[in-house]
Amino acid sequence: GETLLVHAAAGGVGSAAVQLGKAAGATVIGVVGGEEKVKVARDLGCDVVIDRRAQDVIAAVKEATGGRGADVIYDPVGGEAYTQSTKVVAFEGRIVVVGFASGTIPSPALNHALVKNYAILGLHWGLYNTKDPKLVAHCHEQLTELAARGAIKPLISERVPLGGAAAAVQRVADGVTTGRVAVVPGHEGAGA
Rank of each mutant, 00 (worst) to 15 (best):
I95Q: 11
A17C: 08
G78Q: 10
G12E: 05
G66S: 07
I29Q: 09
A119R: 13
A81R: 04
L135M: 13
G14N: 07
G11V: 00
R171W: 05
V38D: 04
G150D: 01
I156S: 10
E2C: 00
V89D: 01
A148I: 00
V18F: 14
A90R: 02
A167D: 14
Q170L: 10
V31N: 06
T144V: 00
T86Q: 11
A81N: 09
A59Q: 04
V48Q: 08
V61H: 06
I152L: 12
G93L: 12
V18K: 06
A101L: 14
A60L: 03
T130R: 15
A173S: 05
G34I: 02
A17M: 09
G78A: 10
P185V: 04
A17V: 01
L162E: 13
E158M: 04
V88E: 02
K131A: 10
G11F: 07
G79A: 13
V6Y: 06
K134M: 10
G34R: 05
P76C: 15
S85G: 09
E63R: 07
V57P: 02
G14S: 04
A151E: 06
V32P: 08
L110E: 00
A17L: 07
G103K: 05
P133F: 14
E145D: 10
Y74F: 15
A70N: 03
V184C: 10
K134Y: 08
L5W: 02
A109C: 07
A81Y: 10
K62F: 03
T104I: 09
L20W: 12
P76Y: 14
V18E: 07
G79E: 12
A16R: 01
L44H: 13
G99N: 12
C139F: 15
I73F: 02
K39F: 03
V97E: 08
V18Y: 10
I50F: 11
G14L: 05
G21T: 02
K134G: 09
P161W: 14
H187D: 07
A167P: 02
A151L: 08
A17P: 06
V181K: 07
G21C: 13
V183E: 07
I120H: 03
A10M: 08
A23Q: 02
K153G: 10
F100S: 07
H140R: 12
A147K: 02
I95M: 13
Y118L: 08
T104W: 09
A192D: 05
A190L: 11
I152S: 08
A9N: 02
T144N: 07
V169G: 03
Q55F: 05
R149Q: 09
A16S: 11
V96T: 09
G34L: 08
E80K: 13
V28C: 11
G30I: 05
D56W: 08
I95S: 12
A8Y: 04
R94M: 11
Y128L: 15
D132L: 11
K39A: 12
A113S: 14
V184A: 14
A59Y: 03
G12N: 02
E63I: 00
G11R: 03
G45A: 15
A147M: 03
G66V: 01
G163R: 04
